[in-house]
Computed example of a mutant assay.
Amino acid sequence: MVSDSCKQEFERDGYTLVRGLFGADEAERLREHYMVLRHRGSYEGDDAGVQTGSRDPLRRYPRMGQMHRWDDASLQWLTDPRIDQVMTGLLDRSPYAVQTMIYFKPPGSRGQALHQDNFYLKAEPGTCVAAWMALDRVNQENGCLQVVPGSHRWPILCTEKADTKVSFTDVTVPLPTPDAAVPVVMEPGDVLFFHGALVHGSAPNVTTDRFRRALIGHYIQGEAEKVASYYHPALRMDGTPLTLEVAEGGGACGEWEDGPDGPVAVLTGTQMINRKHE
């Protein structure tokens, strides 16, 4: 399932793209499943990142989170043996599953500023790893993921102000050069696996008629003993829960809360390192 080149790429760049891990028909079924759920109403874990009454597209299609706790299709995807096989091949040990998310990213919606996932998960020892599955064809026009190769070797960086005209979160991380991030073009069913310290984000969806739906699972390395409280209970890849310690700080990836001037990202955790990669 995992070639030597994929493992070498993951170790070198902090990510690897496994094309066609899921079939296009599976991606279509999941896409339609989440659209039905989204149109039915709201759920615990929904986050829009925009003010009530806003005409922002994200108000109509807020992100869903932790669906595996109440939706069987999400739980089955999160613990799918294909994902487990790839993760085990990359990490030399089966991971623990801790989060599901789906971003709908409708036409005209903002992206998410560059960030590092383990800023939120606080997995230790080791780190978290994401499985980011495209449910639509994704490219730069509809806001594909952008990654900074090699940034998984960086520390967890202190955040700085982001441009909220193009990002629904208001914090980002510094880069050594402005063009360090590269786009990842994907087809439905492709899955990008990436390290928890990898700097990544996305630009706005500038199309008028294309969604950029993506299903994301977050996992922690099998030797991890702690993770932030939001991610409990962790699951073994057979779906059984296990007890881990609670890591101090952390929160949902891309979390925000209402501020006096509108939604702001929640700055959490106490272990950020205040230096850039040299």
Rank of each mutant, 00 (worst) to 15 (best):
C6F: 02
Q8Y: 09
G14P: 01
G14C: 00
T16Q: 02
F22E: 03
A27Q: 05
E28F: 11
R29M: 12
R31E: 14
R31F: 06
E32Y: 10
L37E: 05
E44Y: 05
D46R: 07
Q51W: 13
D56M: 14
R59P: 03
R59V: 08
M67R: 12
D72S: 15
Q76I: 09
L78Y: 02
D80T: 07
D80F: 07
D92F: 10
S94D: 07
P95F: 06
P95Y: 09
Y96C: 03
A97M: 03
T100V: 08
F104Y: 12
G111S: 01
Q116Y: 01
L121H: 14
L121Y: 08
P125I: 13
P125C: 09
V129Y: 04
M133Y: 07
M133F: 13
V138Y: 13
V138R: 10
Q140S: 13
E141G: 08
N142H: 12
N142W: 06
Q146S: 10
V147K: 12
P149Q: 06
H152L: 01
P155T: 05
P155C: 06
T159A: 12
E160W: 05
T169W: 10
T172D: 02
V173N: 01
L175W: 02
T177L: 03
V184L: 09
P188N: 08
P188Y: 09
P188L: 03
D190R: 02
L192V: 15
G196P: 01
A197C: 10
G201T: 07
A203K: 05
P204Q: 06
R213H: 05
L215M: 01
G222W: 03
E223W: 06
E223K: 03
K226H: 12
A228D: 06
G239E: 13
W256Q: 11
W256L: 06
E257I: 09
G259S: 06
G262N: 10
A265H: 13
T268M: 10
T268Y: 10
Q271W: 01
N274Y: 01
R275E: 04
E278S: 01
E278G: 00
